[in-house]
């Protein structure tokens, strides 16, 4: 039987990253994963399929993180973004950028759009779910995502050109 410490070590980094991308506050994310792990360990008997532990834990962490940022986040008003401009970019300009650079760039994004970006692209949430969790419209979620993607690209392009 796997010890709790082992489980913690297996998932802690991943969970902290997920939470941090949403909260953008390390101490708060640490609190969130602490609370989430405790909750998961206490209710682990309720989990019928052990193989689903990581997704179940992730769900708890994300929910707690969303709960934390909800009502604190403000979303920047957005101008119309050309979707085609985003979609049609098929070059590999980002390949040479180090991952820590990308991570920092993501974290430098404005709160609202960063949260949606993380939830949609990195956590696999759908816009409908994000909209519902954050109390915004689906179209706003989509716009905020496109906005985050555009901003991130702009930031990273700088590194690319450098």
């Amino acid at each position: 039987m796997v010890s709790m410490r082992t489980i913690y070590e297996m998932y802690a980094k991943q969970m902290l990253a997920s939470s941090f991308r949403i909260t953008n506050s390390l101490p708060d994310s640490e609190d969130i994963i602490q609370e989430s792990f405790l909750c998961a360990f206490q209710k682990i008997e309720q989990l019928k399929d052990e193989g689903k532990f990581s997704s179940w834990l992730k769900q708890i962490v994300i929910n707690n993180s969303i709960k934390f940022i909800k009502n604190k986040t403000s979303f920047e008003p957005l101008d119309e973004i050309n979707e085609r401009e985003v979609k049609e970019d098929n070059s590999n300009w980002y390949m040479s950028i180090p991952f820590n650079q990308i991570r920092e760039s993501i974290m430098s994004l404005p709160d609202g759009c960063r949260e949606i970006f993380s939830l949609y692209l990195l956590e696999g949430y759908k816009h409908k779910e994000i909209a519902s969790a954050l109390g915004i419209s689906i179209s706003n979620s989509k716009s905020q995502y496109r906005y985050a993607l555009k901003l991130l690209k702009n930031i990273l392009m700088k590194y690319h050109h450098e």
Binding site: A12, K13, L16, D89, L122
Partner: peptide
């Protein structure tokens, strides 16, 4: 697009290095 796919495929590499021991 490719960039989005790239980020998604490498999301593990976007994690921070370690978690403070005090959390455990």
């Amino acid at each position: 697009n490719n960039f989005e796919k790239y980020l998604q495929d490498n999301k593990d590499k976007l994690q921070s290095d370690s978690v403070d021991e005090k959390v455990w």
